[in-house]
């Protein structure tokens, strides 16, 4: 395989397969909770923190290739976005959807302003920052893949362990509360998983399209399944397959951003599934 697609692509492929699996796995619950828009807003809110993380690591003289500081900045920024959404919803007359739209656009706009400023600075390496917007696996290093892979496995493990309480929480929050799983804890767990998936997905699919990883495989799986367990598993497999195929195609055809290719592939799977389940339904 490595002779066919090269060492770097093989590395990225491993990362994409694992990330695709766990994002589909977590995404099934985000979809059922109807929290897709919140996750999109969270993803866009990573941009200012990402750029600030880049500036901090540049001025501190940390090796630019180290993405840890950037991802940390992205996480803090996204968390701040969520806090702002919650504050607007709780303390003003504005609705949840308005809060989401406001945070998404304002944080992203502010991030673009920062990015434009950074690009005119006389420091190297800032070209790679755009990779986080649309996704690019070309520059992925072994350490990136190890990080993405391990965190993906942890997220999927959490979904397996908390499968019952998460299901109960989404379907009937009082039941989960009475069974000893407080609603605020389950809500926090799902938000945390969404945040972590978003952060580790920045490099592979980019912040604009990471919401698709959490939504489209889940929607596709929902068409074929009638239970939460089978739906989340199928969603994980769809996510993994799409991410894997997308990474290979974007490696073979240079200049194609991996995130965009992955989304196109997921959309094709969704389209075929809509047609397929519709035909199956009309036969029954």
């Amino acid at each position: 395989m490595t002779e066919l697609i090269g060492y770097n692509t093989a590395l990225a492929l491993v990362g994409a397969l694992l990330f695709g699996f766990s994002s589909g796995h977590v995404g099934a619950f985000v979809y059922l909770r109807k929290a897709s828009l919140l996750s999109d807003s969270l993803a866009h809110a990573t941009l200012p923190g990402l750029i600030i993380g880049f500036l901090v690591s540049t001025f501190l003289g940390i090796e630019e290739k180290n993405s840890g500081v950037l991802l940390l900045g992205a996480g803090v920024s996204a968390l701040f976005g969520v806090v702002v959404i919650q504050w607007i919803t709780a303390r003003t007359k504005l609705g949840f959807d308005t809060a989401i739209a406001a945070v998404l656009s304002v944080f992203f706009g502010f991030g673009i302003v920062l990015l434009t400023g950074v690009q005119s600075m006389p420091v190297g390496q800032q070209a790679g920052l755009e990779d986080y917007i649309l996704g690019s696996v070309s520059g992925m290093l072994l350490q990136d893949v190890v990080l993405v892979g391990l965190v993906s496995i942890m997220c999927s493990a959490a979904v397996v362990v908390y499968h019952r309480p998460l299901t109960a929480f989404i379907f009937d929050p009082v039941l989960s509360e009475m069974a000893g799983y407080a609603q605020h804890r389950m809500s926090f767990l799902l938000s945390l998983l969404t945040l972590v998936i978003t952060i580790i997905g920045l490099k592979i699919v980019g912040l604009i399209l990471v919401v698709a990883m959490l939504t489209i495989p889940a929607a596709t799986a929902r068409l074929w399944t009638t239970g939460v367990w089978s739906m989340s598993l199928l969603s994980a497999l769809f996510g993994s397959a799409s991410a894997g195929i997308g990474v290979i195609i974007s490696a073979l055809l240079p200049n194609l951003p991996s995130g965009a290719v992955i989304v196109v592939i997921m959309f094709i799977a969704l389209g075929l599934s809509i047609v397929g389940t519709h035909m199956r339904g009309s036969n029954a």
């Binding site: 362990v161 299901t167 109960a168 069974a179 000893g180 239970g227 939460v228």
Partner: peptide
């Protein structure tokens, strides 16, 4: 209740056992 939730009658009744079953 969201009745479009992917669950069978059996699944919903089984949720009554979740507190007894614990996580795994």
């Amino acid at each position: 209740i969201d009745w479009e939730f992917p669950a069978s009658v059996f699944d919903v009744v089984a949720m009554g056992l979740y507190s007894e079953l614990g996580l795994l």
